[in-house]
């Protein structure tokens, strides 16, 4: 643009009948410049730019695109990507929500990763995972959970500090609605699956589980009722998982799939902070006193990318050991 404008200026000064500049200087300038005829673009618009509109983003600064989708361009409102659940999906920490993880907007691709720790009187839970969000439509997730039985391992005769491991592969598809926008009566609705694979095959079978892998099917509806600053979530989960799958799936005695419920209420304190409570019902296929889970949580978005959450969780009885109440902390980065 600048060379072209300069070139034209040089020519214009040549053309002006009273141009004081010696023609030879302008001629040299013309020679040094790329050919005018080869310039496709018209010379710079002499009109001043309207008002004080900021410069549009230069091409180089724009996020990269893959298959016509913006990659990691972000755009979501704070916290609307949810808090990664113990299963690795976008949700409220314990309950799965209809939200799609990642910060991408329609036509974009986003990524998210998380790490969660739960400290209980007798057990320790660690999970971590990654999530890929595609538009406001699809979420693919993977999470790994490690459940340390500590002293209870010895008590149960499976070994001091025996750790159960579980892989969860999740997919969630938004069917309709929007968490924030659209008709108030229409929540964001999503269906999904969570395929879980226990890494303790022989042990979970010995404990009475029928399978070492299983698939949960979920239907979720989530809405932020702005007039009350209240987020409401309800999820139905058709599952045969014992303790989320850590203890296998179904029972050798024939217990199988049942319909379970996950509910969340959240109150928005600010753009960045939300407090809430959740409940997640669970089957007791093995007769080990598998209890419903409950939590009271607070989540805080430090910035667009980092969300921290903490909760008091009541996981009831786990593997016959009662009163497993403790602290849940989780960190999530999202792009």
């Amino acid at each position: 643009m600048i060379p072209a404008a300069f070139c034209l200026h040089a020519i214009a000064s040549l053309a002006a009948p009273l141009a004081p500049a010696p023609p030879v200087i302008a001629y040299v300038a013309v020679l040094d410049m790329p050919s005018v005829a080869e310039q496709d673009e018209p010379p710079a618009d002499p009109e001043p730019v309207l008002e004080t509109a900021p410069e549009p983003q230069p091409e180089a600064d724009r996020p990269p695109r893959i298959a016509g989708m913006d990659v990691l361009a972000g755009g979501k409102l704070l916290l609307t990507n949810g808090i990664t659940t113990v299963d690795g999906s976008s949700g409220g920490g314990v309950a799965r929500w209809a939200t799609i993880g990642g910060r991408q907007m329609p036509g974009g691709i986003g990524l998210s990763a998380h790490a969660t720790a739960i400290e209980l009187p007798d057990y320790g839970w660690r999970s971590y995972g990654v999530l890929l969000g595609i538009g406001d439509r699809l979420e693919l997730s993977y999470a790994r959970a490690d459940f340390d039985t500590r002293d209870i391992g010895a008590l149960l005769g499976i070994g001091q500090g025996y750790t159960f491991n579980l892989d969860t592969f999740g997919a969630k598809l938004r069917l309709a609605g929007d968490l924030v926008y659209g008709e108030t009566w229409l929540p964001q609705i999503a269906i999904g699956i969570e395929h879980k694979r226990s890494r303790d095959g022989a042990l979970v079978r010995a404990l009475g589980a029928a399978d070492t892998a299983g698939t949960d099917y979920t239907l979720s509806a989530t809405k932020l009722f702005l007039a009350r600053s209240l987020l409401v979530n309800a999820t139905l989960r058709y599952t045969e998982a014992n303790e989320l799958g850590l203890l296998g799936f179904g029972s050798a005695a024939g217990e199988g799939y049942t319909l379970q419920f996950e509910g969340s209420l959240g109150y928005q304190l600010s753009r960045r902070a939300v407090v809430g409570a959740e409940i997640r019902t669970k089957p007791d296929n093995l007769g080990l006193g598998d209890d419903d889970w409950m939590d009271v949580f607070v989540a805080y978005a430090l910035n667009d990318h980092l969300t921290l959450s903490a909760a008091y969780v009541d996981l009831g009885s786990i593997a016959t050991i009662p009163d497993q109440r403790g602290a849940f902390v989780s960190a999530q980065v999202a792009f």
Binding site: I11, A12, A15, Y27, S35, V36
Partner: peptide, 11 residues
């Protein structure tokens, strides 16, 4: 040549 022609045209 193009540059000279362009300049001549402009003139």
């Amino acid at each position: 040549l193009t540059a000279t022609a362009s300049a001549a045209l402009m003139l």
